[in-house]
């Protein structure tokens, strides 16, 4: 347990000083928070791509796929965190409970996004591509997925940003990440408000979310050069 240095101010603006004082720990939490937010989205996308493609390819799969993912998305994150270990036979507070739960959410969100993204490919484009001789898989990777990138990217932005917030919630049940800063702030505020760790946590979480957001926006631009080609060359 970290105690407030007697020298340090409790002013909200002191968060930077607080960060410098506890740099090693804060950086470790920042790193934990980063990969806990990101890896589930990556795994989720890898799982959601084939599922989304299947439910686009076989129309009858779409309604049940949407219902199931909607149902999963209904479960509050904290509830899913605590329910994952018994369902998978892990011990409670296993470090895997958070990434597994967040992967479930990411899949639930992205399956639908991928299916809708593929559906956004104009029918005549798909037919023209087939007509010039694309086989099914190359059609998917060379034509349909690139066109669906903007829709899928929008889904990824939602998934990563909400993951950053949900990882912090896992901090309240003892998982190691930036959420611990809020726990610290709460513990240190029993006698009077002590803001620095709380503000630091909020600032780092927002920065993390913004960074992910910008990276995805940037990546989308890289992957879809034709969307910029409209305005002159």
């Amino acid at each position: 347990m970290i105690l407030a240095d007697s020298s340090s101010s409790s002013s909200p603006l002191h968060f930077w000083g607080y960060f410098l004082d506890h740099r090693a720990e804060d950086l470790r939490w920042l790193w934990d928070h980063t990969y806990l937010s990101l890896i589930p989205v990556v795994i989720g996308l890898v799982i959601a791509l084939p599922l989304g493609w299947l439910s686009r390819r076989y129309g009858w799969l779409y309604p049940p796929m949407v219902s199931i993912s909607g149902l999963l998305y209904t479960i509050p994150s904290i509830a899913l965190f605590v329910m994952v270990p018994p369902l998978l036979g892990l011990k409670s507070l296993d470090p895997l409970q958070v990434p597994i739960a967040l992967t479930v959410y990411s899949v639930a969100l992205l399956v639908r996004v991928v299916a809708d993204g593929l559906a956004s490919v104009p029918e005549d484009v798909a037919q023209a591509a087939t007509a010039v001789g694309y086989k099914r898989l190359s059609l998917l990777f060379r034509v349909e997925l690139p066109i669906a990138v903007p829709v899928i990217a929008a889904g990824l932005r939602v998934a990563t940003v909400s993951n950053v917030s949900m990882v912090a919630i896992a901090g309240t049940i003892g998982q190691e990440n930036l959420g611990r800063l809020f726990d610290q702030g709460k513990q240190l505020s029993t006698t009077g408000p002590y803001y620095p760790p709380i503000v630091l946590g909020i600032v780092l979480c927002v920065l993390l979310a913004l960074t992910f957001d910008l990276l995805i926006v940037f990546g989308t631009r890289m992957l879809t050069p034709w969307r910029r080609a409209v305005v002159g060359r």
Binding site: S165, F182, P193, Y194, I198, V199, G201
Partner: peptide
Amino acid sequence: ALPTVGVLVLLTV
């Protein structure tokens, strides 16, 4: 983009 727990703790404090 705000972490809800963080804001909750902050406002409570």
